[in-house]
Design a binder for these strands. Structure first.
Lengths: 339, 339
DNA sequence: CTGTTAGCGCTTTCAC
DNA sequence: GTGAAAGCGCTAACAG
């Protein structure tokens, strides 16, 4: 069917091993033969079989990437960054989608194992903390993104990030600051929420439980959370959201209800997705360093593949990007009045 | 290293072939042995090697997916849909990212060939029309999405879609309607632009070349296009954009300049990405049937893998989704005044 | 510098 | 029902 090394070998009148060496660029093959073989390979349209090579070498040079939802912009940006970082090292990606079901996350990992990925990177893990140990004995290195409690993970510093978000709002003069979280993302959510509460406490403000609502990581959830906050009185004057998508939904719901951002309500997101500068108004958010995160995840993977014990990685700082969705709270109480 | 069929075979005191049959669920193996082998496989933590199987059967049950940019929401949604459709058929995805460089698109395809993907789906092809024939002799079925001139493709009907967009605006009473395209996507762009011009002509309107500007498929390009249109006088009262991302950028630029959407300017996008209902205002757009597109692409792939000649596929209709970014043009000429 | 020989882990005739 | 044997396309000693 497809042309193999043997075809080249017979055509060149040499053995398969010589072809293998020539194509691998081994120094121990006569330049003439080498060139001839290269030429033949090209002319015959030879495409090496990564699969056969993988069997022989027990290395596939492929990285499994498990994502729960590639349509989450943060995940997509991360995957792109991983792809770039991996390609630089000669690796390519096998994508495995697992949907919102933690059960299927394990299935996705299983699939990647069958495909003999050299290592697996889980981008947006849903496996609950209690089941993290299940990943350990997988027989293949597994790296998680943004799961600080797991030994091999590449993480943004949620605490420092959330803290900055709230500090920014406090500095603007807000005192009623709400948090729209995402409970399903246990660990990240917990860290950010705790940091939010601590930041408030550090300013002598009590955490009002009614100001903490839950979203779903998507605009729809942000809308729901916002609607819930809209019923409060007094309303919060500012909002810190689990991610940009949530913030987008929250802004939309607030605007639908006749409130203006940032005049009546300040909003800050998390992630700094590509779209963040183009929302209306442009979104203030905490930028995760996706390229760095990806590089870190890939280099962790490579270390583990090489059998090295990587140093415990420090988490990456999130950077506050102030755009136009945050401002001072209005001083008067007539918050719906003219501009 | 990893446990293989041989390990199971010795443990069970049978031959490797029997293990292979038992695990494959062959009927010609004694139920007792069968069960015993299954149990052993489980207990030993056996993970079948898709790679070895692929070598032996010359089928990898993997689909190559070449994308130029997974962070394009339309592409991400499409890939997710493809993943679902593929998984249903026992296939998984190898992702290959190629960036904006058409040269690298061929490289990405090459990589997927090495990996012995059973078929390749190119999601957002940049290969110019003239070079499409290069794909033919690849030795592996290649399917393109939204490339109607290619024989094996799954496409949305651009003409019907663009036509609907413009007709919608015309029906609202607009007569100066601009188009923000994306020249790099030759074929889709051409079709949509021609349909745009035809729709205008059908209403007795001349195409004004200064109303056709170019974007880059991203908000940034939409902004640039809009800024260009902003210099015109009279300004267009409506805008049809190559995609939703472009529309988002165009809206942002218009709003930055003090224009209101839809009061001063109507905007319609294309794709209907997840975010479209959550922009401010919610975006009127043409919905591409991503699930259908994906199913079609996958079933094309499977047919070709099976050696069948698939019937020429009809293109899928785009559906107009009217939200709040379009409205009647203002009748007075004082378009900046109060409401 | 090059060929021979053994696999890698699985499937698949062909025998028994 | 089960086993032996060959082979998928490549790499990697080991000899020369």
């Amino acid at each position: 069917m497809a042309v193999s090394m043997r075809d080249i070998a017979t055509a060149a009148g040499v053995s398969v091993s010589t072809v293998s060496r020539a194509l691998a660029g081994s120094p121990r093959v006569k330049p003439g033969t080498q060139a001839e073989i290269q030429r033949l390979a090209h002319d015959l349209g030879y495409v090496p079989s990564a699969i056969a090579r993988g069997l022989a070498t027990r290395r596939t040079y492929s990285l499994g990437v498990a994502v729960m939802d590639i349509t989450d912009p943060f995940v997509a940006e991360l995957v792109r960054a991983i792809d770039r970082a991996a390609l630089d090292q000669g690796y390519s990606l096998i994508l495995s989608h697992c949907g919102a079901d933690p059960q299927r996350e394990l299935a996705a990992i299983h699939l990647l194992r069958q495909r003999r990925a050299d290592a697996i990177i889980v981008c947006d893990s849903l496996v609950s903390d209690s089941r993290l140990p299940l990943l350990e004995p997988a027989g293949v290195p597994i790296i998680l993104v943004n799961r600080p409690s797991y030994r091999y993970s590449a993480c943004t510093d949620n605490v420092q990030g959330a803290r900055q978000a709230v500090d920014h709002l406090l500095a603007l003069g807000h005192t009623r600051i709400a948090y729209v979280g995402w409970r399903h993302r246990e660990e990240e959510n917990r860290e950010r929420q705790v940091a939010y509460e601590q930041a408030l406490a550090a300013h002598g403000l009590d955490a009002d439980p009614s100001l903490v609502v839950d979203g779903d990581g998507w605009p729809e959830g942000g809308r729901r959370g916002m609607r819930q906050l809209l019923t409060l009185s007094p309303m919060p004057t500012a909002l810190f959201c689990f991610n940009d998508l949530t913030a987008i939904g929250a802004m939309a719901a607030a605007q639908d209800a006749g409130w203006r951002v940032p005049d009546d309500l300040s909003v800050v997101g998390f992630d700094d997705i590509h779209l963040a500068p183009h929302t209306h108004p442009p979104l203030t958010t905490l930028s995760q360093q996706k390229e760095e995160l990806a590089r870190l995840a890939v280099s962790l993977a490579l270390s583990l593949i090489a059998g090295e014990e990587p140093p415990p990685a420090a988490s990456l700082p999130a950077q506050l990007v102030v755009r136009s969705s945050t401002a001072h709270p209005r001083v008067d109480s007539d918050r719906r009045g003219g501009d």
